[in-house]
């Protein structure tokens, strides 16, 4: 597994390595959720390298952030460690998110983390969705819970969802599905469709001033003063 640090987002350029970030809500060590995500990340890195590119992979493990996540849910404000995790997601070109299934749903830790993300943090970012469970009966959790969640966040989930029950780790089909999802992710990244959507249609989404998204408005220079509300603020009419 290649683990490299994520570059700060303002260092990005056309020649830069592709920045992948794994988000894992697995809590065991070793964790099958983390393993599924790592294998997908490694496959994506291999594909990028095979076509002459380079890639880095960073990891956000949610287990060590569990208390920070719970406190931020209650207080409304993230800790520095949590803010750092958001910034790493914002700076990523593509994401691989992976969670265990508990009680017929995504882990509460994963959902709580997602609940804390700015609505515009991962707009049009390609994402591979992955989950692991103790039984194949939970296999629809990825498509029925994670896909709507990432649709709400306006991300671009890869067409192939990844799911692994214990028996899947003994079948080559899992490796094939991982390769398919990684290929989809790499093609989405190579097409540039995500950043093109974010660049072109950014003003059409709801944003929070001072947010964490890479394109968030942080100073008066970033703000669109031609909106109805801004005109009303300057003594105009709706």
């Amino acid at each position: 597994m290649t683990v490299a640090t994520v570059q700060p987002h303002d260092a990005a350029g056309p020649e830069q390595a592709v920045r992948l970030v794994v988000v894992s809500a697995g809590v065991s060590d070793p964790s099958s959720s983390r393993l599924l995500a790592d294998r997908t990340a490694q496959k994506a890195v291999d594909l990028i390298r095979a076509s002459g590119g380079s890639a880095t992979v960073g990891t956000v493990e949610l287990g060590p952030l569990a208390v920070d996540i719970a406190q931020a849910i209650v207080s409304g404000f993230p800790s520095d460690r949590l803010r750092n995790a958001f910034e790493r997601l914002a700076a990523a070109d593509g994401l691989i998110v992976s969670t265990p299934v508990y009680k017929a749903g995504v882990s509460g830790l994963f959902k709580s983390f997602a609940d804390l993300l700015d609505n515009d943090l991962i707009i049009a970012k390609p994402v591979v969705l992955a989950a692991t469970a103790g039984t194949a009966r939970h296999s629809m959790v990825v498509d029925e819970q994670m896909r709507p969640l990432f649709a709400f966040l306006r991300a671009i989930p890869a067409p192939t969802s990844l799911f692994a029950a214990p028996e899947d780790w003994g079948h080559s089909e899992l490796g094939e599905r991982i390769a398919r999802a990684a290929t989809e992710l790499v093609l989405l990244l190579r097409s540039g469709v995500g950043s093109a959507i974010a660049d072109t249609a950014w003003n059409g989404y709801d944003h929070r001033f001072g947010g964490t998204a890479t394109r968030a408005e942080r100073t008066a220079d970033d703000v669109d003063f031609s909106t109805d509300l801004m005109r009303l603020a300057a003594g105009g009419k709706l």
């Binding site: 207080s75 409304g76 404000f77 929070r208 001033f209 001072g210 408005e217 703000v223 003063f225 509300l229 801004m230 009303l232 603020a233 300057a234 003594g235």
Partner: peptide, 25 residues
Amino acid sequence: IRTPEIAEQAAYYGNGYFANHILAP
């Protein structure tokens, strides 16, 4: 505490702007 339009209105009229500055980092 979060709305640039409100800060814009304060600025437009030359009024004061107040941030409650509690419960937040």
